[in-house]
Nucleic acid binder design. Structure first.
Lengths: 150, 150
DNA sequence: TCTTAAATAGGATTGATTCCTATTTGTCAA
DNA sequence: TTGACAAATAGGAATCAATCCTATTTAAGA
């Protein structure tokens, strides 16, 4: 990601914080910068270890609390998992997920065919849908290859 | 659920265990019986507390390990969550989920319109899809009502 | 500046899961 | 039916994740 693009997104992020009456702290900006440059779907611990390089005194609690705050104001998503630590997704645009059941990898994909997953009428009346996602479980290519070795 | 239906499913379950060279222990059968009669999506701890009534000496580890074993042989599903303890689903037929972001409730639904979620060709070549599910995040009626009180 | 509520650091606590090991038990073959 | 053995269990210890607690620091508006 270009420095220019990072700066642009940080500016937008700061806007969002202000709109929600959140103080702009160096820790929050640092965490946000790590997040948007991280490999997809990091855990709080992973973010913590990376941020620690820039802020050696930062605590895990701050990172974790901050990530939850970011989720609340819509700066990131908590993604669905099948157990294990929470995982966060800085990509809040519509997309779908493949979950490898063997290695736990989550792979993003976009697909025109799922673009308008209409919500059944019966549900729309009793449930307020905020986001929709197709989750495909299975085996990624690496794990399929490994299985065939036996 | 009728006793007859339970007996039928237990027989099928025992078949499945045999196919996978798993021993038929009273604990496994007990856990399976609790599972198919439980409210949907119980945690290991919930299953443990119920099974404990019939097997006072059973350990949490046995319940938890057994549930994982059941998932491996396809007797149940581990369902997607957004953090918190693992949750298991005895309903392995195709269905979809609503997740209430406020109370964490998971509501099953079936929908004709999602019946044939075709897998994009580009993905089918590199990823072996085993199950597909639409996950809708939002607010259930109870939580929507609560929010409007403020 | 000054004030104040919000945020942070760091350690303690809680909760969930897995690991370890001695003991028990289902299964299969004799 | 019995004996042998690998698999499974019980119970406690250890690990990992998340949250709580509180003294201290800090961002932001007056």
């Amino acid at each position: 990601m270009q420095n220019k693009e990072i700066a642009r997104r940080v500016r937008l992020f700061i806007e969002t914080c202000r709109r929600h009456q959140l103080k702009i702290t160096p820790q929050r900006v640092g965490i946000y910068r790590v997040l948007i440059q991280s490999q997809r779907h990091p855990t709080a611990d992973l973010v913590f270890r990376v941020v620690k390089k820039e802020f050696p005194n930062i605590s895990f609690d701050t990172v974790n609390r901050t990530l939850s705050t970011f989720a609340e104001i819509g700066v990131l998503d908590v993604v669905e998992t099948f157990g294990g630590p929470k995982r966060f997704d800085p990509d809040i645009t519509d997309h779908h997920h493949l979950h490898c059941m063997a290695c736990g990898r989550i792979i993003d994909f976009e697909y025109e065919g799922y673009a308008r997953l209409e919500v059944p009428k019966a549900i729309a009346t009793t449930f307020k849908v905020i986001s929709r996602r197709v989750v495909l479980k299975g085996l990624c290519d690496t794990c399929t290859a490994k299985q065939q070795m036996f």
